[in-house]
């Protein structure tokens, strides 16, 4: 493991940016590990949550934003609920995903594609059209086998409509997306 020279590894603004975007005080974290202990997905993470918090304090931007863990977080809010220092950890995970996208550092591309497919569907119809979203996701990832076993069940139960439920004023939702992109 290479030795890290403290001032060099530090992207001084990174911690500030994360704190500002998440409205959280990360200096409060004293590394008790409660977030890691309670996180249902710790077993699947490449970096445990408490270590991500430590790396944030140290300003290790690249390593944090290119972690797989931030994409596997299910936003279950356990960490936020139990943090003894009242840090909204789940909100920080959100912010890290936002930043990773901007920096082009998405380590779990399929998760991103799923979410993009979902939002594309919302933008198009105003509501999510589950079959259309799945088709889009498969097109983006080539994962044609995704839940192929469930499709007949869901269709048979009448749980998947083959036509989207479009809202009347789709244009309003489309304008929300358009203005959001202008501002971003």
């Amino acid at each position: 493991m290479p030795t890290k020279t403290v001032p060099d590894r530090n992207d001084g603004n990174f911690l500030q940016e994360v704190q500002q975007a998440s409205e959280q005080n990360l200096t409060r974290c004293y590394q008790c590990g409660n977030c890691t202990a309670g996180c249902p997905l710790s077993f699947a993470y490449d970096i445990p949550v408490n270590k991500l918090m430590r790396m944030l304090q140290a300003g290790e931007k690249h390593a944090v934003l290119s972690s797989r863990a931030i994409w596997l977080c299910a936003s279950c809010e356990t960490c936020t609920t139990r943090c003894p220092n009242e840090i909204d950890v789940a909100r920080i995970m959100d912010v890290l995903r936002h930043m990773a996208r901007r920096e082009g550092l998405v380590a779990e591309a399929p998760v991103r594609h799923l979410w993009d497919a979902f939002l594309t569907s919302v933008e198009k119809h105003g509501r999510v059209f589950e079959v259309g979203m799945m088709a889009n996701f498969v097109k983006r990832t080539g994962r044609f086998w995704t839940d192929a076993d469930l499709a007949p069940v869901a269709l048979g139960k009448g749980k998947l409509g083959l036509r989207p439920h479009c809202i009347e004023h789709q244009d309003e939702v489309q304008r929300i997306f358009a203005r959001f992109r202008e501002q971003a």
Partner: peptide, 25 residues
Amino acid sequence: GRVSTIQPRNGRYVVKGADTLMGSP
């Protein structure tokens, strides 16, 4: 590490904590 939760299981108690020095739950 701190303990996140205690859950009963078969008359005993599963204590879910973290070993922050190992970096694992």
